[in-house]
């Protein structure tokens, strides 16, 4: 059955009318959808970014061995030999405190003036140890840290594990919070639709007698839910887009060595997905009510 322009106009008129009538409840529903999708978006961005950083660190396969202050040259050479004997070590290179400071300067880029006030170089001498395989890192790091002259051993895996732990918690907390919020949004939407059905019960009974099809009667209610879902997710995406963008910019000026996800395609998919989810919430919420309260 072809849908006339008139029928379409009717749907939009009806939808607008009832959104306005329930405007406070509608705002609450839109707000709930916005908040749940915002949290979902933030968690997804957090997880993808920590994963990216973790991956980045993992790929370096590197142990940094910081030396105690005031070691003699022979002590340093002795230590280098001993590190070379640890199994799995591919290459050891010395990074002097001066070189470390210069690297830090370079890494900071335009922000290097924050180091200008420093009188003494606070960084220690270090060895950079490349490993053959990443699973040997933890064992090698433990051995190296027991060698004389070693102050501290840092290796990517350590940070990687911490980051992955963070990701896991973000996932779990995110799923619970988002689940609860989505349920709340579904509940609000179906309450709104129930109110709309109730407000229009006389009209609906007349429509039935006049021979309106069930879909004709249902459509304005479904559209109402879809509109709420769309508005809620649209607001969430706009907020997320601008705040993430400015966050990325801040990070890249102040802590430029942290690799953040700024892939346009990926972000576009994320935002599209959020809007899609908002629409699904809207349709699902109204569908329940329409089925339950609209005995057509």
């Amino acid at each position: 059955m072809a849908m006339g322009v008139n029928t379409l106009a009717y749907y939009f008129k009806e939808t607008a009318r009832y959104l306005v009538r329930n405007s406070w409840l509608s705002l609450a529903a839109i707000g709930t959808i916005t908040v749940s999708l915002l949290i979902l978006g933030v968690s997804i961005l957090l997880v993808t970014n920590t994963n990216k950083i973790a991956l980045d660190l993992e790929q370096k396969l590197e142990i940094r061995v910081f030396l105690k202050q005031n070691l003699s040259l022979s002590q340093v050479e002795q230590l280098e030999k001993r590190i070379n004997f640890v199994s799995g070590v591919a290459r050891v290179s010395f990074v002097s405190k001066e070189k470390a400071l210069a690297d830090l300067r370079k890494g900071l880029g335009e922000r290097k003036d924050i180091l200008a006030g420093m009188k003494k170089n606070p960084l220690p001498d270090a060895f950079q140890v490349k490993m053959e395989r990443s699973e040997q890192i933890a064992g090698a790091a433990a051995q190296i840290s027991s060698l004389p002259g070693v102050e501290q051993v840092l290796y990517g895996q350590d940070t990687v594990e911490k980051l992955l732990l963070v990701t896991r918690w973000v996932r779990i907390a995110g799923i619970i919070i988002i689940g609860a919020l989505i349920l709340a949004a579904l509940f609000l939407i179906s309450s709104i639709i129930r109110l709309s059905v109730f407000a229009r019960r006389q009209e609906i009974s007349i429509m039935k007698v006049l021979g309106a099809t069930n879909w004709f009667i249902r459509t304005p209610f479904l559209l109402e839910g879809v509109t709420l879902g769309f508005l809620g997710s649209f607001v969430a995406v706009v907020i997320l887009y601008f705040s993430y963008w400015s966050f990325v910019q801040q990070i890249s000026t102040f802590v430029p060595f942290i690799p953040l996800v700024a892939d346009q395609r990926l972000l576009f998919n994320l935002f599209g997905g959020l809007v899609g989810l908002g629409l699904v919430i809207g349709i699902a919420g109204s569908f329940f009510s329409v089925r339950k309260y609209l005995k057509v």
Binding site: M1, T7, I206, L210, G211
Partner: peptide, 14 residues
């Protein structure tokens, strides 16, 4: 007009 609208009547018919 409502009687025609709800059965998808066109603007001309209405």
């Amino acid at each position: 007009a409502f009687a025609l609208e709800v059965i998808g009547g066109s603007g001309q018919i209405i």
